[in-house]
């Protein structure tokens, strides 16, 4: 019986490999949706992964969000002050943070931290036959390893995004308060007046998409890593690169859709 290696490429080896990879990724995603609704649900492992992804990321997310808030405020101030419009800073920052920067910064950090960790962990389990060991003990490794991690990233990234938004706005407030002597109440009243329900909903939906992407890409790369430690390293690395690439594309697509909704 001829294996995949015997098959002659249709166009060229590279193009063939690209489409084969695409088909394999598609069937991986399809398998996720097939398995996610079928018991057993491995809830304990989902909670464990949520803890790892959520709580263990807090220090990094807090620091990054806070710095983003301060830096963005300080960078925007000179341009606004030319027009005597520094009072618009809270509005500008809140829109930028909630609509784009919060989800994007959180997702990129999570892709770097979680994506690589998931890719390396599952890749290493594959190489050391731990996944085979699960399978022969009549446990579905896809459900235990992939479904739980993808659910955890999908649900935790929106939570982390909201937290990043809050921390970034706090950073921004400190900067505005120090320079423009604006009180916290005034700052946050202006913040909430500027952002709409659509901003929050689109931010949450986008974060869900980013979380799903980070989880599924990390798991896919790890699950399909080739043998050896080099393969594990490559799985971790390509999980980050691929997740970041997809996050930017998704950001662009969601932006177009939300803008179209705004125009309606």
């Amino acid at each position: 019986m001829a294996g995949d290696a015997d098959r002659k490429p249709v166009l060229s080896k590279k193009i063939d490999k690209f489409f084969t990879g695409l088909a394999s990724a598609f069937s991986f995603v399809k398998r996720f949706f097939r398995e996610v609704f079928v018991p057993p649900y491995e809830l304990k492992e989902v909670v464990h992964q949520c803890y790892r992804i959520g709580v263990e990321s807090l220090p990094l997310i807090s620091l990054t969000g806070f710095i983003v808030g301060i830096v963005f405020t300080n960078q925007s101030r000179p341009s606004l002050s030319e027009f005597g419009a520094t009072s618009w800073l809270p509005s500008l920052i809140s829109i930028a943070v909630v609509r784009a920067m919060g989800p994007l910064v959180t997702a990129l950090i999570a892709a770097g931290k979680m994506g690589s960790s998931i890719g390396a962990e599952i890749g290493s389990m594959k190489v050391t036959e731990q996944i085979d060991a699960m399978e022969v003990s009549a446990t579905n490794p896809f459900k235990f390893l992939v479904v739980t991690r993808v659910l955890a990233t999908t649900f935790m990234i929106p939570v982390l995004v909201m937290y990043t938004d809050f921390v970034a706005l706090m950073g921004s407030f400190l900067s505005v308060n120090a320079n423009e002597m604006v009180s916290m109440t005034t700052f946050f009243v202006q913040v909430f007046e500027s952002i709409s329900f659509l901003d929050i909903i689109s931010s949450v939906l986008k974060s869900l998409l980013f979380g799903f992407t980070i989880g599924i890409v990390g798991c896919y790369k790890g699950y399909n890593s080739s043998k050896g430690t080099e393969g594990v390293g490559r799985a971790a690395n390509s999980a980050v690169v691929m997740a970041m690439f997809l996050i930017f594309i998704e950001e662009l697509l969601v932006l177009q859709i939300v803008n179209a909704i705004r125009m309606m």
Partner: peptide, 14 residues
């Protein structure tokens, strides 16, 4: 599979 025990070369402990 429940009736078969498989001891792996590298033990494959989690």
């Amino acid at each position: 599979r429940l009736k078969i025990g498989f001891s792996f070369q590298n033990s494959a402990l989690y």
